[in-house]
Write a protein that binds this DNA or RNA. Structure first.
Lengths: 139, 139
DNA sequence: TAGCCCTTTGCAACAAAGTTGCAAAGTTTT
DNA sequence: AAAACTTTGCAACTTTGTTGCAAAGGGCTA
């Protein structure tokens, strides 16, 4: 059976390379979101830093992963659901960051409420990040 | 009449220095949120980069400004309302980032809805950032 | 307002994060 | 299997953020 990573890459019209397979695989195996640093550490010396930057960029462009905003200056990436096409992200779910263990979850079943904006403002995207304690760290 | 900046600094138990006055003044005059880079550019050669970092850090700790999460790796800072005490931020309002002009607004009158989380998750803070087109850039 | 004490600033040096151009290696297509 | 194209790794560089320390500045008291 073909690996899931390969299928995903082909579906998004990307050539299948070692770097892309490994990085995508890492996302598939991780519960939460990953930062560039997470990936760099995990991969060890396997890949060049630059390659990781470029791979993540490509994945975002092609709609394989999406970014999660945060206030700590570390961009987090997480796998998109299937309805994300290239250039058109539809990640209208809530994200949760655990203050304790640092894991970032995509709460796929918690959707973002519609926000009523003041006159003149038009929304194109809404990002909602909740932080607190996750089910694993709960005392 | 005393400048507003000086009053604010004193209220937050900070000694009044030139750097702090100028940076706070810049916040008071700006409609939206500012990044470190904005301030560095605006201030020109006037202050050392390090001083700006430290001043922003101090302001956040003392509850004068708060950070706004974003996905583009540039922390934004905005003035807190009066009910933010040192170490206790109460910025439960929505933020809006204009895709066009880049301005970040604090929508003080739009409050963040309560989110129902899955079992085991406990929220301590909720950040909601809407992006789109602001009233100034509306065609 | 002079002098003491404590805080803040600027400098220098460093560490980390991100970018760019280009030649070599790898993929895809025919 | 070779041509055409894409991706990777390297090197060099820019930007962003951090730390320690001596000098300068602010606040308080007499």
């Amino acid at each position: 059976m073909q690996e899931a990573a390969i299928i995903t890459l082909k579906k998004h019209e990307l050539s299948v390379t070692d770097t892309r397979k490994k990085i995508l695989q890492f996302f598939l195996e991780s519960a939460g979101a990953l930062t560039h640093a997470d990936i760099e550490q995990q991969m060890g010396e396997a890949f060049d830093r630059v390659t990781i930057y470029r791979t993540l960029q490509t994945f975002v462009e092609k709609g394989i992963i999406h970014t999660i905003p945060s206030a700590d200056n570390a961009i987090r990436y997480a796998l998109c659901k299937d309805n994300c096409a290239a250039g058109h992200h539809h990640d209208d779910h809530v994200h949760f960051m655990c203050d304790d263990c640092g894991t970032t979850y995509c709460l796929d079943h918690v959707s973002v409420p519609k926000i009523k904006l003041p006159k003149g403002f038009t929304a194109s995207q809404t990002d909602l990040v909740v932080s607190g304690v996750c089910y694993k760290c709960e005392a």
